[in-house]
């Protein structure tokens, strides 16, 4: 009973103080929120990049060889049959001009200028062979075979998807390094701002603290309101950033799918990302705020 009463009084004291120094509290909360927003952005970028790379890795075994316009339909059929017999080939799919054009129109249906320009060419989109190798180790040999002189008369170009994978890996690497550095800088700034806010609060309440000591308040009765106040910055900041993050994820999911050539982000992925953001944010903000307030009270609150 006594514990409940004391807890209620400590929390009330923290809440009163939060509103008594309203603008200082707003500044501290904003700083925590900015840091959380940066952490969330990094988290989303990282998750999507990893997702994208795994998505691309599925396609890495597929080499697309584009026929030049001089190749006849019969030659294309012969080449397909021949390639099917090459070692380490698992599957060969022929995509005709018509099918390639249909897919192109479907993909760019919103871009009327691009679609209308198709009529300018006789065969605007090339026919191709999609060749899947047995496994990634055979990829290079197969790629070199298709690029060899034997096929150079028929194929205009042969795509090498390894470049995409390497590029994505570099992007992930950059996001990870840059993100971690940025997050660490903002975390340090957040700790400093929260630390200073609590120090200011301790200074503002020095008379009250002194009287509390004199009348026999326990150390934690004096300390807890400051820690709870810092935790309030954390919780409020998490709430704000979570709402903003959910809104942005919901609004931008379509564009993200298109940009990263993902089939669909789906509601599950948005939910998973959102719950990850909330968990990381609450842990980071509470951790940083408690750390900052604890350092401040250890240093400036004489008990």
């Amino acid at each position: 009973m006594t514990k409940t009463i004391t807890t209620r009084r400590v929390v009330r004291s923290a809440v009163t103080n939060f509103f008594r120094n309203f603008w200082v509290s707003v500044a501290a909360t904003s700083m925590v929120a900015i840091t959380l927003f940066i952490i969330s952005t990094i988290l989303v970028l990282y998750t999507l990049a990893v997702l994208s790379i795994s998505n691309s890795q599925d396609k890495v075994g597929v080499i697309t060889a584009y026929f030049n316009d001089k190749t006849t339909d019969q030659e294309m059929a012969d080449i397909k049959a021949e390639v099917e017999l090459l070692p380490n080939v698992r599957e060969v799919i022929f995509i005709s001009h018509e099918e390639a054009e249909r897919r192109f129109r479907e993909r760019h249906k919103d871009n009327s200028i691009l679609i209308s320009s198709l009529s300018e060419f006789e065969k605007p989109v090339q026919a191709s062979l999609s060749i899947r190798s047995e496994d990634l180790n055979n990829y290079e040999g197969l790629y070199n075979e298709l690029k060899s002189q034997r096929y150079s008369a028929y194929f205009d170009r042969v795509s090498d998807t390894r470049v995409v994978i390497e590029k994505l890996s570099r992007i992930i690497d950059f996001i990870t390094k840059f993100g971690i550095i940025l997050a660490l800088i903002f975390m340090a700034v957040t700790v400093m701002v929260t630390f200073n806010t609590i120090r200011l609060t301790i200074y503002n309440r020095r008379e009250e603290v002194e009287i509390m000591r004199l009348v026999g308040a326990t150390n934690w009765y004096i300390r807890w309101p400051f820690i709870i106040e810092a935790m309030m910055y954390a919780v409020l900041a998490t709430l704000i950033v979570s709402i903003v993050a959910f809104g942005l994820l919901y609004l931008l999911s379509g564009s993200i799918e298109e940009f990263l050539s993902l089939d669909s982000l789906g509601t599950n992925l948005i939910n998973a990302l959102f719950s990850r953001i909330v968990i990381v944010n609450i842990l980071a903000s509470l951790g940083l705020s408690i750390l900052a307030s604890y350092i401040a009270i250890r240093r400036y609150l004489k008990i």
Binding site: M1, T2, K3, I5, I211, M212, V215, G216, A217, T218
Partner: peptide, 24 residues
């Protein structure tokens, strides 16, 4: 003297009892 300026006489005295967890 060291009284809390924003509290009444009653509240200043009550404050001493509050910090030691006395019931309202």
């Amino acid at each position: 003297i060291k009284l809390l300026p924003m509290r009444t006489a009653f509240e200043n005295i009550a404050f001493a009892l509050e910090v030691s967890g006395e019931k309202p």
